[in-house]
């Protein structure tokens, strides 16, 4: 009798859990777009490209800067400018899991190869903070230069590269020892950058260059400068209203290694180059002030956030054209794609 009651109770408990648990779905890819002024995250289904949900300001808020995902898609890590922290948000529940305070204004994040550590550049302190994702504490800080902004893990997983906006260089940190190895001088402030698959080259956008440079990492020097096309437009004169210290923001290498995609932020274009030849394949008009580039995992689509008109451009890479433009939140900047099995209804 008691075992029957126990079984019934178990069934009820399980049924109850199912009622409140997130919906189980076949694994699907989503794009998470951080809306920096709105303080929320737009969730977009791939490949249907519909805004299916918004993770609200009440969960995120405080001007989110970067959003990245764990490799299994379970967790989003979001840096928040106003409160000097990084939060972890579950993609299944879209609720905050934990937060870690960092010693200044956090910018673009990167996870260590084993995802135990989160690398957080601290823009106003010239530091790289290393956050333990298990204890949620900063385990060490490393002086890396002035205005550290972007971070990228090299494909070998041995080196972390940090782009410094104000000291005009790229710092390289040995992730095994958390020690600064070197700083590679560049002509100007370093904006979004990428590392080639063989870790021999670094591609970097610079503050005042309408294009990007290619750095030979075996010689630590710029070996080529690519000027972006203007798409028949005239580059506007610098003005405070147009983020005059940054000509371009948004540079990505497609997961299949075939394309390099670069935004022309002041004139609202995105340029597509072949890899490794760096031949210009096409120029796509997008929204106003494109700010970031990311890709679907199959490399079919590039996504470009247009922060001045609160839209997202969906670019078909094989067709080299914009196939959709979606309204997202206020001042969309950084974003990430990930495959997840569950998300809330």
């Amino acid at each position: 009798m008691s075992s029957s009651i126990a079984r019934i109770a178990l069934v009820l408990v399980v049924a109850g859990v199912r009622l409140v648990a997130p919906t189980a779905l076949a694994a699907q890819e989503y794009l998470y777009v951080g809306n920096s002024l709105g303080g929320d995250i737009s969730v977009i289904s791939i490949p249907s490209h519909k805004v299916v949900r918004t993770i609200p300001e009440s969960v995120v808020g405080n001007h989110p800067d970067d959003v990245i995902a764990s490799r299994n898609g379970d967790v989003l890590y979001i840096s928040r400018l106003d409160v000097n922290d990084v939060i972890a948000v579950s993609t299944a529940t879209e609720q905050m899991l934990w937060r870690a305070e960092v010693p200044g204004v956090p910018n673009h994040l990167t996870l260590s190869p084993d995802e135990r550590f989160l690398y957080v550049p601290i823009y106003d302190k010239g530091l790289l903070a290393v956050v333990d994702t298990k204890t949620h504490q900063v385990v060490t800080t490393i002086e890396v230069g002035k205005g550290p902004h972007g971070t990228q893990l090299g494909p070998t997983g041995k080196h972390l590269y940090i782009g410094n906006m104000e000291s005009n260089d790229v710092a390289v940190v040995d992730v095994a020892t958390n020690r600064l190895e070197k700083r590679i001088p560049l002509p100007e402030g370093v904006r979004p950058f990428q590392i080639s698959r063989d870790e021999k080259y670094l591609f970097a956008q610079l503050s005042k260059l309408h294009g990007f440079v290619i750095v030979d990492l075996t010689r630590d020097s710029v070996v080529r400068t690519i000027t972006l096309p203007t798409g028949g437009k005239t580059l506007p004169e610098p003005s405070l209203g147009m983020s005059h210290y940054v000509m371009n923001h948004g540079l990505g290498l497609s997961p299949d290694g075939k394309y390099l995609v670069a935004n022309g932020s002041l004139i609202g274009i995105t340029a597509i180059y072949s890899m490794p030849e760096l031949e210009l394949l096409g120029t796509v008009p997008v929204g106003r002030e494109p700010n970031w580039v990311t890709f679907s995992r199959d490399s079919r689509y590039a996504y470009v956030s247009n922060r001045r008109d609160n839209t997202l451009s969906v670019i078909s890479l094989p067709e080299r054209k914009e196939v959709a433009r979606l309204k997202v939140g206020e001042f969309p900047q950084r974003m990430t794609t990930t495959v997840i099995a569950r998300r809330p209804n």
């Binding site: 002024l37 400018l81 204004v105 910018n107 983020s243 005059h244 001042f331």
Partner: peptide
């Protein structure tokens, strides 16, 4: 509502009673 750093649009943080920049965290 234009940041004097790089010209980004500014927001109001009601909890902090501060005007904040969503680009590089100016306050």
């Amino acid at each position: 509502a234009v940041c004097t750093h790089e010209g980004c649009p500014l927001g109001w943080n009601a909890q902090q009673h501060l005007i904040r920049c969503p680009c590089h965290g100016g306050a």
